Simulated assay, not measured.
Amino acid sequence: MKVVLAFDSFKGSLSSAEAGAAAARAIHSVFEDASCDVIPLADGGEGTVVAAVDAASGTYETLQVTGPLGKPASAIIGLIRERQSAELTAVLEVASICGITMVPAGQLDPIGASTRGVGEAVMQLLDRGIRRFVIGLGGSATNDGGMGMLAVLGAVFRDSEGRSLSGCGGELQRTVSVRLSGLDPRLADCAITVATDVGNPLCGPDGATMIYGKQKGASPKQQVMLDKGMGSYAALIEAASAASWQSNPGAGAAGGLGFALLAIGGVIESGAGWLMSIAKLRERVRGANWVLTGEGRSDSQTLYGKLPIHVAAVSEEAGSRCILLSGSLGEQMDELEKRFHGCFSIVKEPASLEMCINQAEELMELAVRQLFRLLRGSER
């Protein structure tokens, strides 16, 4: 029996590799001679760096940057050589630079949070001669439209009194002038892949603030204020660039950081698609009896391009059967069932989120062991 284990991370509990390893142990406890291929994956969010380094046999480095709320932070980045180019590519994920899991409980602050750390990471890598970047946009704590990043890279923002602004969500509405001529000229020589599977535009009811602002701590009143500020800030940048990116799918990713990366020449690409390509997922699922995938929670958002949907599509192309195993299952299960041969939650009983997180590894093993015991029985 050949089984491919291609999970996303289970945020706050299991990395993609840990989820796959736990599932493999469970399968081997039932089918000792099973061939289990663990393929760490991500869709641009948490785990993107680990998945990329694993897939491309790259290396890790640590950069010192400013975290989302202004405190020093250590960000892990990956250095890889993609098949398409012999050049060194730096892989960054905003989840480890200005990520929501970096903010202590009860301290989320979309007004004060900034993407300055992303700009600092890019500047350090430019100084080392890196000109190829893949930046994963999932899991940010910020809603500043990438203003903080652009400020570090040389853009100048001023308020009505001529004071320079450093870039945070609360300064969007205060910005009355933008100068982009000071952007680091080395950016013109860069290839920047913006890895995300979020298709939201920058502003409006489906934009960064109105869809994701609440989970970053914004009240309804703050969401309206931030969205209005985002629109005026973006209009100034587009006027200075004589271009338009606000409506581009993905411009609203990471609190509008996608928009700012488009403004400096970035190209949006499916994070899951990019990682599956370098991990050679299509080749590795051929001949598999089963493919297991999953994430922390699967619901209606999964249907709009989250990693498990991509894995299911690749499995179907290869003629392999795909099963979804996630921490929990939400709305639109009837639609999810159409994409998989089975959809399961690994939670075994009513429990607190904290308990589920702490027991995630054993819960995964238990669920997979029971599933493959059932499969073994069906073969008799």
Score class of each variant (00 low, 15 high):
2 K>F: 03
8 D>F: 03
10 F>S: 04
19 A>N: 02
25 R>C: 08
30 V>R: 03
32 E>A: 15
32 E>Y: 10
40 P>N: 08
42 A>P: 03
45 G>Q: 02
46 E>H: 02
48 T>L: 09
49 V>G: 00
54 D>R: 06
55 A>I: 10
57 S>K: 12
65 V>N: 13
66 T>Y: 04
69 L>T: 12
84 Q>S: 14
91 V>M: 04
92 L>E: 04
93 E>W: 01
95 A>S: 04
102 M>S: 05
103 V>S: 06
107 Q>I: 04
107 Q>W: 08
107 Q>E: 15
110 P>D: 14
110 P>M: 13
110 P>N: 10
112 G>S: 14
113 A>T: 10
114 S>V: 09
118 V>F: 10
122 V>P: 12
123 M>W: 07
125 L>H: 09
141 A>Y: 07
144 D>I: 00
144 D>P: 05
157 F>T: 06
159 D>I: 05
162 G>L: 10
171 E>H: 14
190 C>K: 01
197 D>V: 02
198 V>Y: 02
202 L>S: 13
205 P>N: 08
209 T>S: 07
210 M>F: 00
210 M>V: 06
217 G>V: 09
221 K>D: 13
222 Q>K: 00
223 Q>N: 03
243 A>T: 06
244 S>N: 09
250 G>N: 10
254 A>R: 08
261 L>W: 13
263 A>D: 12
268 I>S: 03
268 I>R: 03
270 S>E: 12
286 R>Q: 13
295 E>F: 03
297 R>Y: 03
299 D>V: 05
305 G>A: 01
306 K>E: 03
306 K>F: 04
308 P>C: 05
314 V>E: 14
316 E>S: 15
323 I>G: 09
328 S>K: 01
341 H>G: 14
346 I>M: 11
353 L>T: 15
358 N>Y: 08
361 E>N: 11
363 L>N: 15
363 L>I: 01
367 A>N: 05
368 V>E: 09
370 Q>D: 13
372 F>A: 01
374 L>F: 11
378 S>T: 11
380 R>M: 09
